[in-house]
Design a protein around this nucleic acid. Structure first.
Lengths: 222, 222
DNA sequence: TAATTTTTTTAGCCCAAGCTAAAACCAAGC
DNA sequence: GCTTGGTTTTAGCTTGGGCTAAAAAAATTA
């Protein structure tokens, strides 16, 4: 079965919503694919007919296993193209999403597996999100927690972000926060829960709680 | 003005037809974009309205300068992606056309200029066709002639093909003919105009006239 | 439970890009 | 100068993906 770019986007949206909310409401989908709820109903019908989605009126949508396979394949393509754009074409990490969104609909397994090999089978994309392998297996991130959960005195490495909007990523750039960097949580202010991080051998940064909640870290015991 | 992939394909088709036939008939265009002549008429109207095509009923289509710019940009994108697929992803030269056809509609100047830089500003694609630069300037191939024009005893280097169909390219593979290789034209048979080429320091190949007409060469005086 | 709000669906419409079949046009050939 | 054959255009239809506005269903609140 062959899917249009639009249909692929719906599958990916359902997949993402299921991942975190558990449930893909019509309205949430509409926001995600930038269409009206009415259009979503339409499309869910079609995807049900072609066997990618399980759906009954008013009950929300879930993916069939065929649908999930498609969605995971798309996520794989998206993330590999992001790696390509950042690693090879020197794009900034906040500028690749839209392009990857276009590229992910091109070609089939052959292309993406060759791209994967060319990039050296990367495990993570430029935002720290794991890249599903050719079989569709996604390894979850290891012991990642939100930076807002760290305790004073703890050390950690930044390994991902929850929000990968351009706006947020650029903000992290300004704070000098990047994937792979190590920090110590110096203190956490009672007043607004903002925190002070010191970079290994260097500068201090003041990190608002709002930011910390969207940064993923791994604790280190050094 | 923003063009759909389909519209871009029409512009490219008109450009190609103008290049060799001089004139882009409705019928030829239909064959090229895989649509009916009626659909072509439709689209030519639209492209005329948006200022990319000059067109009056029954008179055939020509590109405006805006249209030509678009077309050249597309050719550039197409050929750069072909270089990427062959050089970086190790595709065979006969397998890249369809993929490049998809990739050429992605992104804008930024992407393609970065790709160009990443590839080292190549001058030619894997079939020997010249790649227009960022300004849209296409350098014509230097003194290239069809191999069928060579004279017995002459030496030459293969620098391009006229037919870049998968079928033809695979045939050249079987004959051990590739871009950049040097040959001497040993003899040309009266009977069917087929020729015998000897590779520098190596094997003989028997090349039919039909093949020779579709291979481009540069004469060498060594 | 009843009333109200929110969410989803239905109904009917639009637009892009294609199609077929029939009509109009052009270019020869007699 | 007319007829004929090929090409191009017109007219009207189809399909995919969207939209709005109104109706229906579900969820929330009183």
């Amino acid at each position: 079965m062959l899917l249009s770019p639009s249909q692929e986007n719906y599958l990916k949206a359902i997949y993402k919503l299921q991942e975190d909310d558990g449930i893909a409401t019509n309205q949430a989908l509409a926001a995600m694919v930038e269409a009206t709820p009415a259009s979503v109903t339409n499309m869910l019908r079609k995807l049900t007919d072609t066997g990618f989605v399980e759906y009954e009126a008013y009950q929300g949508a879930t993916l069939t296993s065929a649908g999930r396979n498609q969605a995971v394949a798309l996520v794989r393509k998206h993330r590999l193209w992001e790696v390509f754009l950042v690693d090879k074409l020197q794009y900034d990490w906040d500028a690749v999403h839209a392009l990857a969104e276009e590229l992910e609909h091109i070609g089939g397994d052959e292309l993406i597996n060759r791209l994967d090999a060319f990039l050296g089978h990367p495990g993570f994309d430029p935002h720290g999100d794991p890249i599903p392998n050719a079989k569709g297996v996604v390894r979850a991130r290891q012991h990642a927690i939100a930076a807002s959960e760290a305790s004073v005195g703890g050390t950690f490495v930044v390994c991902g972000v929850k929000d990968s909007s351009s706006l947020f990523l650029q903000h992290l750039d300004k704070l000098n926060i990047a994937l792979g960097k190590a920090y110590t949580l110096k203190e956490c202010l009672e007043f607004d829960r903002s925190a002070v991080w010191t970079e290994q051998g260097g500068a201090c940064t003041n990190v608002s709680n709002e930011v910390a909640k969207n940064v993923l870290i791994q604790l280190t015991d050094a």
